[in-house]
């Protein structure tokens, strides 16, 4: 693992940028644990101070240090993204591999469920559900909920890949080795599907964090929890733009740009690295 990171750092410019951006993001979310400020409390610092050495991101109209607030926001948004990605990956891989490999009626049933999810209007549904569960739903709940909606496109992608792998002779060889279906799926097909899984994981994280921003801005997520979305919600609620407290909005924008770019570049570079063709080149083919 360390060697992989070293190789990527040395030979891939995209990975270097991604590494720096994501490291910054992780450090930020990590130091939230040593924050001197409790994000739940207000009026702890002077109001509306512009960025300075003492308050690097300034302070907001609620008397909170925006920098420390953002450390919690980044941590929560990342957490949410990871939960969503994890839940939806599990479903996407399971559905994609099973539908693709088994074919027949299993495929037809899974794909009709899949397509129903594809056509479902996710945003209105999420708004409705968030409204219903408002206050009772924590970040984990929201993450799982979004995970339940975030898999169908990726499952289709994985399925189509498996459909073509199934026709390759090595799948037939594995069958004549007496391998069970599960074994074939995991050992023969999964390695070829991994690049898709990885790319879609990161896209999925970006989607889920972005979706939370939408819900947050609308005030539909739990606004007492600091996230990138709720930061913008509070800034709007206090009319930060009108009041000229631009740093209150600037902070979430800059942080999310750094995070999204970092994630995007990471997916690009790691994807190339784990692509079977590149892997083959590395083992010397």
């Amino acid at each position: 693992m360390l060697k992989v990171i070293r190789d990527l750092l040395r030979y891939d410019g995209r990975f270097r940028v991604a590494f720096i951006f994501l490291l910054a993001t992780f450090i930020m979310s990590a130091i939230s644990y040593v924050s001197p400020q409790d994000p739940g409390r207000t009026f702890q610092v002077p109001l509306d101070r512009s960025p300075s050495l003492q308050y690097p991101f300034g302070t907001n109209s609620r008397g909170q240090d925006v920098f420390w607030w953002m450390t919690f926001a980044v941590r929560n948004s990342l957490y949410l993204g990871l939960i969503t990605a994890a839940v939806s990956r599990v479903i996407a891989i399971f559905v994609g591999l099973t539908a693709g490999y088994r074919g027949g009626y299993v495929d037809r049933i899974l794909m009709s469920v899949n397509d129903s999810f594809v056509v479902m209007p996710v945003l209105p549904l999420l708004i409705l559900l968030s409204f219903l569960f408002r206050g009772r739903m924590g970040l984990t709940g929201l993450g799982v909920l979004m995970g339940l909606f975030g898999w169908p496109w990726d499952a289709r992608l994985i399925r189509s890949q498996v459909l073509s792998l199934k026709e390759r002779s090595f799948t037939r060889t594995a069958q004549y080795c007496g391998a069970k279906d599960f074994h074939i799926t995991i050992f023969e097909h999964l390695p070829f599907v991994l690049p898709i899984v990885f790319a879609t994981t990161i896209n999925n994280m970006i989607w889920s964090i972005g979706m939370e921003v939408t819900l947050g801005v609308l005030g539909l997520s739990n606004v007492t929890l600091p996230t990138i979305g709720t930061t913008i919600y509070w800034a709007n609620a206090h009319q930060a733009m009108v009041a000229g407290i631009w740093w209150w909005l600037m902070a979430p924008v800059v942080v999310s740009v750094v995070m999204f770019l970092g994630l995007y570049l990471l997916s690009q570079s790691v994807n190339e690295y784990i692509d079977p063709r590149t892997r083959l080149r590395r083992i010397g083919a």
Partner: peptide, 8 residues
Amino acid sequence: RTEAYGIS
């Protein structure tokens, strides 16, 4: 002549 991840 090719180079990939430091292996030329």
